[in-house]
Write a protein that binds this DNA or RNA. Structure first.
Length: 275
DNA sequence: CCGCGGGCCTGCGCGC
DNA sequence: TGCGCGCAGGCCCGCG
């Protein structure tokens, strides 16, 4: 999916015209996403104003002025965009939000791994989808030592642990592999073998990669695009992701990028500069 | 409790 | 040209 940078880019894109807008109409064309769109969505949302747009992990939270919050997740292939002419409707345009400003926001998701839920804002902390999620990468309270403590008793490869949203929020396949390359850690390394010194490099690498990715508007591979239709450009800055057989881009490294499968997902790394 | 593999969906690119 | 296969940004569930 859309990982943290793509969701954050979407949040920023929506904010410019959704903040303080009133949602006048919700149309559900396809209710069956990863789970069913709640029947109450329409009733809970129509007539309410969007007060604040927040991102938590890969979830987008639209806080309304009636005490409800819309919870959106883009899954693997989801995107949210503003309808502009010319508009080519798709059979995967599942939900449409229309505002009092005349805008229509479309939730398009071919694979339907995304989801939409609605919950009282005050109950979000205990929402089953959000309750167990780990710290945000940019949370000031997150320190290398915290990562180390989470790693030290785990026997899984570090790649798998970072994919787990309970460990740290918002990371996915691309940015994990880019961050691990940045701090020279192999994705296959076991968590309980990662040293405190390595954690001290890992966290800044995660933050650096995410920051750069947000600056470039995320990564558009096939489905993802900004709210206004522009493409995210970070894929032109990948060091390892999807670069099998190509030269490692680290200065003066002579390695060639390798691909392996871990837990059914691809991992890319440089066998020369990562250890 | 933990770790792994499968399943959920559609679409695309590749090799034959 | 057409078909089958593998693979794709994520997450949940059930099994051992």
């Amino acid at each position: 999916m859309p990982e943290l940078p793509e969701v954050e880019t979407t949040r920023r894109g929506l904010e410019t015209f959704l903040k303080n807008a009133r949602i006048e109409k919700v149309t559900v064309h396809q209710a069956m996403l990863r789970r069913a769109v709640p029947k109450a969505l329409k009733k809970s949302v129509e007539g309410a104003k969007v007060k604040k747009l927040e991102r938590r992990a890969k979830y987008l939270l639209l806080h309304l002025d009636n005490g409800q919050t819309i919870i959106l997740h883009l899954g693997m292939s989801g995107r949210l965009f503003k309808k502009t002419e010319p508009y080519t409707p798709s059979q995967h345009d599942h939900v449409v939000f229309e505002t009092d400003k005349g805008d229509a926001i479309i939730f398009r998701d071919p694979r339907r791994f995304g989801l939409i839920d609605i919950a009282p804002t005050k109950d979000l902390k205990n929402h089953p989808l959000l309750k167990q999620i780990g710290p945000e990468p940019f949370d000031n309270k997150l320190a290398p030592q915290i990562l180390y403590d989470k790693f030290k008793n785990k026997k899984t490869p570090v790649k798998a642990a970072l994919l787990d949203q309970h460990m740290i929020a918002g990371l996915g396949n691309i940015y994990i592999l880019e961050a691990l390359h940045d701090c020279r850690i192999l994705p296959t390394r076991l968590c309980n073998q990662i040293t405190p010194a390595e954690c001290k490099k890992l966290l800044p690498s995660i933050r650096k990669i995410l920051t750069k990715a947000i600056e470039w508007g995320g990564s558009s591979l096939r489905d993802y695009a900004h709210v206004d239709g522009q493409l995210g450009k970070f894929k032109h800055h990948f060091m390892v992701y999807d670069r099998t057989g190509e030269k490692c881009l680290r200065k003066s490294c002579t390695g060639t990028i390798k691909r392996i499968a871990q837990g059914g997902r691809s991992s890319f790394f440089c066998p020369v500069c990562q250890h």
